[in-house]
């Protein structure tokens, strides 16, 4: 296990390094960016930039110094809002985004798994078709469209929910719904497929031969095995929820990180783009790592395998 951890953390570090490097050099290669010679920014901003990025040093020195500051979680200044640093933006935005993301993830996981199980147990029945049609529709509608439709119907036409912002639990319903639909649909489809697969396994027949009730067979014997594949996609799902927050936060005017990120893209606020990208990547890589660990805990075969492979 320890050997595995070390190896896994090593490869996480490599991926992160690739991202930082990529970001750094891409940003520096843009003609007209504040990192290049022709500078089109204000005096104050220029000073901030120079002190943070060491722009007077050779490029490779800049790169290593940048690595160093990133390693100490210092992402530098903004060039559009001269009084702000990326860290401050993250500090303000992250908790909100995190809340939105987590609530969405939980909603998506629970409703998706439930839908998938029901569909699998009613295989080829009406409920199965209904659930899967809903799921395919969920995958098919872009989340910004979903968000707009929800606002249009529930907030504007029926006026039962607030249109925007993130101030009370009631405000959370629409954004969460809009953001959760896609991931929920993906989970539901995957759960159904893997449940159907598991239900044909020999050990399910063994369980039936013991005289266990269908409920016990499904929840004790089938579910855990069926959920293993679902766990493996949680990482990429987290990624899609995260990018989804850009859209949702902007539409619902939620003061999260995603909103800052989108603004920084629109304004070409390069240091913020850099910092945020790296921060997001770190979060995602950690998510993937946690998913791997969870998988190892859920599937007893994995643990031993890694132990042996040490």
């Amino acid at each position: 296990m320890l050997g595995y951890l070390v190896k896994r953390i090593g490869s996480m570090a490599v991926t992160l390094l690739v991202i930082i490097t990529l970001t750094f050099f891409l940003m520096h290669s843009i003609p007209g960016s504040p990192f290049n010679e022709e500078r089109a920014t204000s005096e104050a901003v220029q000073k901030n930039l120079e002190s943070y990025y060491h722009l007077d040093e050779p490029l490779y020195v800049q790169y290593f110094l940048y690595l160093k500051s990133v390693a100490t979680f210092d992402f530098g200044p903004s060039i559009k809002k001269s009084s702000q640093t990326v860290n401050e933006m993250l500090g303000r935005g992250f908790p909100v985004s995190f809340e939105l993301g987590m609530v969405t993830l939980i909603v998506a996981i629970f409703s998706g798994i439930l839908l998938g199980i029901i569909a699998a147990l009613r295989h080829n029945g009406f409920i199965d078709y209904l659930a899967m049609t809903v799921a395919v529709l969920g995958i098919s509608v872009p989340n910004f469209v979903m968000a707009t439709l929800l606002i249009q119907q529930l907030a504007v036409t029926w006026e039962i929910l607030p249109v925007a912002t993130w101030t009370s639990p009631k405000h959370m319903i629409l954004p969460t719904l809009a953001l959760a639909t896609g991931p929920m649909a993906i989970i539901a489809r995957l759960t159904r497929a893997s449940m159907l697969e598991v239900l044909t396994q020999d050990y399910i027949r063994t369980a039936k031969a013991k005289g266990l009730s269908p409920v016990k067979i499904v929840f004790k014997h089938a579910l855990k095995n069926a959920l293993l594949p679902v766990v493996t996609i949680l990482g990429s799902l987290a990624a899609s929820i995260l990018t989804g927050t850009f859209v949702i936060e902007k539409i619902f005017a939620i003061p999260g990180m995603g909103k800052y990120f989108v603004e920084s893209i629109n304004q070409r606020d390069y240091p913020v783009i850099m910092g945020t990208t790296i921060f997001y990547s770190t979060v995602l890589i950690i998510m993937l790592f946690l998913v791997d660990l969870a998988y190892g805990i859920l599937d007893p075969r994995i643990k031993l395998h890694k132990k042996e492979g040490k």
Binding site: I273, T277, S281
Partner: peptide, 12 residues
């Protein structure tokens, strides 16, 4: 594979 797909797309 570890790279966040859409972030890279945005960056590019």
């Amino acid at each position: 594979y570890g790279l966040p797909y859409l972030l890279v797309v945005i960056l590019i």
